[in-house]
Structure formats: structure tokens, C-alpha cells
Amino acid sequence: MTKKVIVLGEAREGALRNVSFETIAAAKKISGGGEVVAVLLGDSVQSLATEMIHYGADRAITVEHPHLKTYTSDGFSQAFMAVVESESPDAVVFGHTALGKDLSPKVASKLKSGLVSDVTDIEGEGADVVFIRPIFSGKAFEKVKIKDGIDFITIRPNNIEPLAHDASRTGDVSSLSVDITNLRTVIKEVVRKSTEGVDLSEAKVIVAGGRGVKSEDGFEPLKELANLLGGAVGASRGACDADYCDYSLQIGQTGKVVTPDLYIAAGISGAIQHLAGMSNSKIIVAINKDPEANIFKVADYGIVGDLFEVIPMLTEEFKKLKAN
């Protein structure tokens, strides 16, 4: 059985987020050879549609409306449901991003469907598809099947490889006109976070600090290394509780669960709650003064030493590497 799958592409500051391309790869598996339709919602998203096709979507539908300029669950659910009504998909894939987490339960409720959130892998395809997702923040995993209704999932960024970009791919791009009314939330302002650039949940490299960073300023060398590697800065609960950084940086069972290619833990002891949030990273480097620290038990590579000595040396060494 082949399935028609709709994916929701997500743009930030005028560009598609990488997770959008990952949703297409996930949709291909679920479709079992059926059609993959990309949906883009916003005030000006038409120009992004071909990019979704280059990454493997068969066609794209855009809904443009001034009320879709900033995300609201009311605006986006009305627009998305209009697409669902005109397309009658067998499956839907969103990214498990702030937007996807906020919007997907509302859409699932309207569809009276199940929803498998935060999927990290997909087994089988077509009718036999099974979704894998972490539970207890990654302390365990479950395999989930949808018994009844459409296959609706959100996928965790950075886990499902996008398909190769192919600029020669073509597909139909159509637009759907939707009346968007009765928005109950008015967004007044968005205050950008102080740390620039890469979002923690999508970062390929994370440099995280714990109590060992000792102060807000102590995060500076970590930021420098993260910026050099195109990564993001994270933190343990200990560092957040001590007010060295904002709670939005917290990684762990409360906080964010991350799976970057490279996780550098500096001055983090490795409490079980922190390990839950990062131990599925591909490569873990631990830097800690205490050779008995728990973090070394999950680290691929460890350096016993003072992070304020090691991190700047590491930054210099990477700079040399980049220079060559």
C-alpha cells in the first residue's frame, strides 16, 4: 500500500530549517512509494517551495496570508486543516520543533487522530511502518504503531538524514487561498536569545558547561569554542540553578534532550538526569578536573584537567586545523 504524505516545511528568517528536509526523507519512508506533498505556511513562502522539491517532495502547496507572518496555533491550524481537507493525506509529518510541538496536538485533536511525537527513527515502510521514539528522555526507547486513523508524527531534528539535494528535480507548486479569522493570540514582540545562531536542538556540535564554569563569565571560552565549530552552548542544571546561564540552555531530563554529532561536556559531573539528555549524542568528550566524575563513564574521549586550561587550548588547536 502506498500512502500520500504531507510534510510541513518550516522557515526561520526567510530560510527553510534543515528539519524541513528531514521531514521529506521521513515522509518518503512512510509513503512506501506514494506521493510526498510539502506544505509551506507564511506571509511570503512561495520562493521556498522549489527547495522542498529539490530535497525530494513531489509537489508543494503554499498558503500565504498576512496573519501567517508570525506563528500562532489558531492561524497555522486553520491554514493547515484547509490543506488537509483538500488533500486527504494518509500521513502527516512535522518537525519536533517549538512550532511543531505547539501545533501538532491541535491538528491531531481536530483530525481525532493519534500522534507519535519526537520520532528519532522509522522502521519498515508503507503499511508496515513503525516509529521509534525516546521515552524517559532517552533512558529508554519505544516502538509505536498507529492502529487507527492517519499516521501523524513529529520528528526530532538531526536524527533522520535528509535526501540529497537535486536541483534538477521539478514538481508542481500550487497555492491555496484560506480565510484566517479569530486569532486569539497576538504576538507583541520576539526577544532574540543572547547566544546567536544555532539552536540547541538542531546543533551538530554542543559545548556544554556545568558547575565547573563557576560564573556567567566562565561560559565565554565555551562560547568561543562553540562559535568556532558552528555549534551551540548548553548547560547542566547545576549551572542554570547557580544562575551562570539561562534555563533555555539546560540539557537533561528537565530541559532539552539533544543528540549532536559532538558533545563537549566541560565541568559537568554527569548526574543521571543530565546523562538522559545527552548520552545519545554520537561522540561525547568530557573535560573535568575530577577523574572519578560520572561523565567519563559515557564519554568517548576524556581529558582530566581544568576546563579553563583545556577549552582555550582546544580552541587554538581547532583554529590551527581550520587554518590548514
Partner: peptide
């Protein structure tokens, strides 16, 4: 609407190498 068909633990992460020598 959904059914959990299996629950399992992730492969246990083996402790790696603690590097030695001059910092």
C-alpha cells in the same frame, strides 16, 4: 489510536578513553 509494540533500553554506552600525558 497508537500502540506501543516494544520498549527497550539503548545500547549501553561504553566508557571510552581517558587521554594521558602532557595536557
Amino acid at each position: 489510536k497508537t500502540e506501543t509494540i516494544e520498549i527497550y533500553l539503548p545500547p549501553k554506552k561504553e566508557a571510552g578513553r581517558v587521554l594521558q600525558g602532557d595536557l
